[in-house]
């Protein structure tokens, strides 16, 4: 009798052990990193003069995007390229799209002047094939963009011809160039 009880007890223990070994839970922890680009600019406040440059946009040291605009003063009497800024794209995708557009359609304008007071200009994106003499909204693909592979493209301002001050109303002429970087999926 005693042996029979022991055998039953042993069988019960085996059954219980077997059920426990097949039971588990599974929790999957996930995090999502989205495609992302940050753009920054090292803008020369006097075009071509490195000593006057300031940084705008994404700050790689702090990881924070600060002021996103700056002004660069260009010279109207010369037709050689004037370096406005070094534009840096930091993306986590292999390619990204850089878009260039301006508020005044690639013309310096004086708010007090007439349409005749426009000064047309073009932009060069150095190191980017086919990105010279840009005179209209422009899109180009940056390759080898990352992750952790920042791409730098110097941005030049060029006057196709010297502006003749005698033909222009005195005042400040300006245009705002907007550089947008979008990660490619």
């Amino acid at each position: 009798m005693s042996k029979a009880v022991c055998l039953l007890a042993a069988m019960a223990a085996l059954v219980a052990q077997s059920a426990s070994a097949n039971d588990s839970v599974s929790v999957t922890v996930t995090g999502m990193v989205e495609p992302r680009c940050e753009v920054s600019g090292f803008v020369r406040q006097i075009a071509g003069v490195n000593a006057t440059a300031i940084g705008i946009g994404y700050d790689v040291n702090t990881g924070v995007t600060g002021q996103t605009f700056a002004t660069s003063r260009v010279e109207l009497a010369i037709t050689s390229p004037q370096l406005l800024a070094d534009v840096t794209a930091r993306c986590n995708t292999g390619t990204a799209t850089l878009m260039l557009a301006t508020d005044n359609n690639f013309r310096l304008r004086n708010p007090a002047g007439s349409n005749a007071d426009e000064i047309p200009f073009v932009l060069n994106l150095i190191g980017q094939r086919g990105a010279a003499g840009i005179a209209a909204p422009f899109t180009t693909v940056l390759t080898n963009t990352g992750p952790n592979r920042p791409q730098v493209r110097p941005l030049q301002f060029v006057l196709p011809m010297r502006a003749d001050p005698a033909m222009l109303t005195p005042g400040t002429y300006s245009d705002t160039i907007r550089v947008t970087i979008t990660p490619n999926p």
């Binding site: 600019g41 200009f121 301002f157």
Partner: peptide, 19 residues
């Protein structure tokens, strides 16, 4: 995925003096 882009603005200015 949401594509997060980023933009900066650079204003080019020049002064035309009375002449």
């Amino acid at each position: 995925p949401a594509l997060a882009d980023d933009t900066i603005a650079i204003t080019a200015t020049a002064e035309v003096a009375p002449v």
